[in-house]
Design a protein around this nucleic acid. Sequence first.
DNA 1: AGTGCGACCCGAACGC
DNA 2: TGCGTTCGGGTCGCAC
Length: 278
Amino acid sequence: MPEKPEVITVARKLEKKIINKKITDVKILYPKMIDYPDIQTFKENIKNQVIHSITTRGKWIVLQLDRDYLLFHLRMEGKFFFREKKDEINKHEHVIFELDNEEELRFADVRKFGRTMLIPKDKLYTMKPYAELGLEPWDENLNALYLKEKYKNKKIPIKTVLLDQSIMTGIGNIYADEILFLSNINPLTKPCDLTDVDLNHIIKNTIKVLDKAIEEGGTTIRSYTSEEGVTGLFQNNLNVHQRENEKCHVCGNTIIKIRVGGRGTYYCPKCQKEKKSI
DNA sequence: AGTGCGACCCGAACGC
DNA sequence: TGCGTTCGGGTCGCAC
């Protein structure tokens, strides 16, 4: 499930193959994957632009082209494949970028949830998604004061708020559970009830979990181990996620699973006690 | 504005 | 074995 570590891992892999390549044409087999602009404009504008750099912002992969930025969101199962132009197109390959060599970059997604957009450079920061993204976890402006301000009126569970990309970007369902475990915070805690110590723990552990996951090349759960799909190793470091009824690595208690904001949520009821209401 | 939830997808896992 | 049902994942849009 691509969260920030998986997105970074994919971007690093792509970088080696696409820098300075020209996109000569694009085939769009599933038009809904194009979020912006309309299909025709997307096709016309992308033609003959060279890829200069690749980076990430939140869970987005951002390619800098001559005139535009090309953005990709992998959602749950978006993947990239490099194929020879003559190779048969797989049924899950939905947007195909022809390059100025024998290869094509194919954007594939079994679930068809992945998205791509082509945004003029001068519009990047004023339109979605950039305009609404919160701070990267490593941003020096991300501190307890920032979170305190964002959380002060929040009464929904902290687990849900960690997934809110407009506050802090890059965290998904897996790492949210892990961050809360390391911080000894119950996933149902109201953000407005968190202490400064809690907030600092959240920041510290977010960086800790994401850095470790990046180092491990992401997490592979429910993997469809397609050859170029990212198969990371962080699953071996998971403390709570997907460990229902297993023993807590710290206290030996049984990990339980509940639903929070419609999401499967795993935690240790002993290590992550609910705050007593005052 | 904040919140809650269905919709978008479809393969895998589950239940019978 | 085969079939039908449920689940999950990130984000958006709509209703309250």
